[in-house]
Simulated assay, not measured.
Amino acid sequence: MPDPTTTPVPNPPFSPTLTYDERLNLQKMDELDFVIFSNAEWARVGESHARNIRVHWPDGHFTDGLDRHVSDLQAMFAWAPDTHIKSHPFRVAKDSLTAVTGVMQGTFSRPMPDGNGGFIQPTGKKFSIHMATVGLWNRQHTMDEEFLFWDNLTFNQQLGLA
């Protein structure tokens, strides 16, 4: 398989051995990344996330609650409004667990809040990084816990910040 960050890779078909619940959870993950996240449809995040979701971020911190998760996602789009995920080259499910890989792409085109009341001016640089999401799903087919993974050093280098 080519490197998905430089060469588009189509979504593989779902395994025929998936259960109904496993397939539904993976379909929700596709909808989440390809439509809801990529189009910043924040009012729809609750379709795949429980109200009390715990989200583990790549830098090691975690957040609790749907509202906090949505505000964190909105903050990403403040400085890179064209952020998107178009494919999941690898996706697996077993019982209430899903794992997908993808490529998150966008452009650092607007000022980025620095967390201290200031802003980092946009570099205009594009980013294309490997990401992975592991989800723990409940019986209502929403995630109770989500683990997000990407290489922050590569991300910051592509943004022109490292």
Rank of each mutant, 00 (worst) to 15 (best):
K126C: 06
G124K: 12
R110E: 13
I53W: 06
V92F: 15
G115Y: 00
R139G: 07
P16G: 09
S109K: 07
G115N: 10
R68N: 15
I129C: 08
G60A: 05
F90H: 12
F108L: 05
N39V: 04
M1F: 11
R91G: 00
Q140R: 10
R139M: 05
L148W: 14
T101Q: 06
A80F: 03
A132L: 03
P12H: 04
E41K: 10
F147A: 14
W57G: 00
P10G: 06
F14Y: 04
E145H: 04
D114R: 00
T123K: 02
D72P: 15
M104P: 14
D59L: 08
A132F: 08
M104E: 05
V103F: 02
F127K: 06
P113N: 13
K86I: 09
E146V: 11
P13W: 13
R23H: 08
H84T: 11
G124W: 10
T101E: 13
P10E: 06
L153W: 15
N39A: 06
P113C: 05
T17S: 09
P2I: 01
K86V: 08
G117H: 11
Y20F: 13
D72H: 14
H88E: 01
T123H: 13
N11L: 01
P12W: 02
P4T: 00
F62V: 15
T6N: 09
A75V: 15
L18C: 07
P111Q: 04
D21Y: 15
